[in-house]
Nucleic acid binder design. Structure first.
Lengths: 226, 226
DNA sequence: AGATCGTATGTTGCATGCATGTCCGGGTCA
DNA sequence: TGACCCGGACATGCATGCAACATACGATCT
């Protein structure tokens, strides 16, 4: 019954947040304090504290005296968040270019090299996680903890993991994406902050378009091929 | 005794946040739950919920089983936050330029015109509030609520209001700042998102430099005059 | 039959009490 | 004199109980 696979060291906030961002629950589902309390084997008090924080993060909505519900971002909010994502990741690329060699740069090089192979092979699952790794490594490599925090919040709200998969189903997107990753990496290696930022923003914008402009049939995507 | 000037409609979170960002308390001051509960005439439970949220916002630090303290951002964190401020306000300028005429644009025009007069007159107090208004109006005018939220959090953490005043004490900064505001406004009026973003970021960067590079004597600032 | 009102139930909001951990100070011993 | 140990005061952490409100459902009246 009330058990979850997260380790015992993780805090209650992280566990509940994970439960929500994991996507197990439908948007709009009610989150009863008592049932959560029972599930996590604590009383309602710490649950309430956590829920208030998750509301501040934008993951849930607390209707006073009524109940707590999983929040469903409107389409408009999603667009807004992707605009933020673009500039935040752009900043990350610029900062990383300015910073020069570091551990994350090595990781990034390996990541890009590996994802080039994966994208050609058409292994969507693996490539999806590599994309995740690319963006996260980039943000981490910016050496700006506040950026990491804000970015993390944004990604949680976007439930990004669930969205990425859809994009990559578009034919040709993976190889395009991989090529753009390589371009960004080159700019960073060249210590060109402006170029890295611009290229990264273009990349994020392109990926966003793939997500936000769904096509009725996948064959329509050929108009984006060279 | 335990009364504060904030209206009765404001939530407890906002009241406590205001109490902290107001700057009444020294960084590092302890915030006892019981004293806060008594001050706001509630029990410890809602106070605890609010404190947890303020910790998430980065305004306070809760040392488990020890106490809660007003957080003092490190210099590094301040630099990090200003980097974020730069791209966020840059995004705001770009979005507002793309958006075209709107209520906030009118406000911005009035603001810039008024602050040009004020800066020449040397009325630092008034100009400080006008600067505040310029930046806030710009962010509001971007028509991106997520941006407004993130920006608001950032400004709270920066205790920006307390910092701005210092900058403006630098001779000549006010007129320079005013001129830069005018440039940004012009770019927005010209519907030039890229130009608006670039100009805005330069402006924010310049202001930041004024803040982060304190001089031992104010007379040293003459080397920045034309 | 349809609308309305009262009640039953489930939820959150908050106050309180107890358990637990931390920190500081005095007393003791070497 | 110095280090060490121990106990009390105070803080948080959490469980629980009660009150208040919102919602849904069913009986009742027209």
């Amino acid at each position: 019954m009330h058990t979850d696979p997260t380790g015992p060291a993780t805090t209650l906030l992280e566990r509940l947040r994970a439960k929500i961002t994991r996507g197990d629950l439908e948007p709009g589902s009610p989150l009863s304090e008592v049932s959560l309390a029972h599930e996590f084997d604590v009383s309602r008090t710490p649950i309430r504290e956590v829920l208030k924080q998750l509301q501040l993060e934008g993951l849930i909505e607390i209707r006073p005296k009524v109940g707590t519900f999983i929040r469903e971002p409107t389409r408009r909010e999603i667009v807004e968040m992707f605009q933020l994502k673009e500039v935040l990741e752009g900043l990350a690329a610029a900062l990383m270019a300015r910073r020069g060699p570091c551990h994350q740069l090595d990781v990034l090089e390996d990541n890009v090299a590996a994802s080039e192979v994966t994208s050609q092979a058409g292994d969507t699952d693996t490539y999806a996680s590599q994309v995740q790794g690319f963006h996260q490594t980039l943000v981490d490599g910016a050496d700006n903890n506040k950026l990491v925090e804000q970015y993390g919040r944004l990604m949680n709200q976007l439930s990004f993991y669930t969205l990425v998969r859809k994009t990559l189903d578009h034919p040709g997107r993976a190889v395009n994406s991989s090529r753009e990753h390589r371009q960004v990496l080159t700019m960073i290696q060249n210590k060109d902050p402006f170029g890295a930022e611009t290229t990264m923003r273009s990349h994020v914008f392109a990926s966003t378009q793939e997500l936000l402009v769904p096509r009725t049939r996948t064959t329509l995507s050929i108009d984006r091929e060279p």
